[in-house]
Amino acid sequence: MKKASSRFARLSLAMLMSAPLAHAADLVVSNWDGYMAPETTDNFEKLTGAKVITDIHATNEEILTKVLANGGEGFDVLFVSSPAAEILHKKGLLAEIDPTKVPNLKNLYPEATRLEYDPGNHFSVPYAWGTTGICYRADKVSPAPDSWKQLLNPSDALKGKVTLLSTERWLMAAGFLANGWDVNDSNPAHIKAVRDQLLKARKRILGFDDTTFHAKLVSGETYMAHAFDGWCNYGTAENPDVKFAVPKEGSDLWVDTMVILKKSKNIDNAQAFVNFILTPKNHVWVVENVDYKIPNRVAMDGVDPALLAKFPNLTTTPAELLKMHLLRDVSDATHQAYTAAVRDVVTAP
């Protein structure tokens, strides 16, 4: 694991808070495994006296099921993707982010305060962001791939050497983008067309892989993969011939966020925890250890230039990211149509 940048000195509680904390109490935070520095909760407890209990969820769907089943009780802070944050907000389960208690909001890029699902960061605070594209072996694929169509209809030379993501929003997005449509498309005819296109692609690819595609690229089992930008970096770290490209048709913009439950018994501590994460020396850990971009301008300014040179997609600017198609919550009917289409594709012989 890389050590956090020494550029950021330890901040005092007075610098972190603009209002005193409520009496210390347990704070329940749910996050993906390995998505936060291991020492974060201990450091927060030392700073504030508030003990943090960490719950791990594997998917947005898993934590949504838990939270919705209990009407928002039992958790204080959640790390979820933006469509999940939208769902929770629409159901009235999220507390307002109080900028007087989260003064480190000032560290965010201006673009991170103008995201369409929550302009002004009223109910969510972006934690990490990025896009998907094509992760490939530059020593095996020439010229460099530049279109979703190359991924969905591999050449004869690449037949059986390609993997696609199976997560429904991103698999459908690849098809939508290849046809010039929005990643949140709800047109039934478009959904069917993408389903049919993916069924044809299914016959020319190795398979679906959301978690180990970078290892397959490194080993040479595959030469091209549908990939999250940060996870492509894991392959680049082992073999510099593994490169990442955003197709010319554009891509999605995914945002992982922090939200606070309205029924939290520890609202002040929850606001303080979100503020603590936004401290540059804490937030930069995501870049240096998960290899993902973060929307924290001050923290990104402190990233080692050598790391940026090693992983060029970390230098994608906020302005460039906002040109992508922001993943949004879709209607229940559209979500069900996506699920059915992807099920047909992934389970096809």
Rank of each mutant, 00 (worst) to 15 (best):
V290R: 12
K106F: 03
N43S: 15
L88D: 11
K200T: 12
S6E: 14
V77K: 01
D146T: 15
L68V: 13
S5A: 12
A333P: 03
V29W: 03
A193H: 09
Y338D: 12
A112F: 07
L321W: 09
N187G: 08
R7N: 07
A193K: 05
S219F: 00
L314M: 14
D332E: 14
R137D: 00
A270Q: 04
L115K: 05
T40K: 02
F123Q: 14
A157E: 13
P154W: 02
A84M: 01
V80M: 00
T212A: 07
W148R: 09
Y127R: 04
R202A: 04
L88R: 12
T315E: 15
V346R: 10
I191P: 04
L198Y: 01
D185N: 15
T132P: 00
I191W: 10
A25M: 14
T100Q: 11
P20E: 09
I56Y: 13
V125C: 14
F244W: 02
Y223T: 03
R7G: 00
V286D: 01
V274G: 13
A144L: 08
K3M: 04
G120P: 07
L68H: 09
T41Y: 01
T236Q: 07
H335I: 01
N70D: 15
G302D: 03
Q150P: 14
N107A: 06
K2W: 06
L152R: 10
D33I: 10
T212G: 02
T334L: 08
A227F: 03
A348Y: 11
G250N: 07
H283Q: 12
K310L: 12
Q150F: 01
K281A: 06
A85I: 03
P143E: 08
K51S: 12
K149A: 15
D229R: 03
P143I: 02
W148G: 12
A337K: 03
M36S: 08
L322G: 00
L314V: 14
W148N: 02
A178S: 15
R328G: 09
R114D: 13
E320F: 14
T236R: 10
L261R: 11
S6V: 12
V28L: 14
A340M: 11
D196V: 06
R343S: 15
V259E: 06
Y223A: 00
W148Y: 13
D268A: 15
G49T: 08
K323Q: 07
A189N: 06
P305K: 01
L308F: 14
V286I: 04
T334G: 06
D241C: 03
M324Y: 09
P110I: 05
L93M: 13
H226S: 01
S124Y: 11
F75M: 11
L158A: 09
L199K: 10
L177C: 14
P103C: 10
D210V: 04
S142K: 10
T48C: 00
L158Q: 06
S186Q: 15
A138S: 15
D241Q: 10
K248V: 05
A340P: 08
L16P: 00
P154M: 02
V52M: 04
R204L: 12
T257N: 05
K323E: 05
S142Y: 04
D329R: 09
L68P: 08
D33K: 09
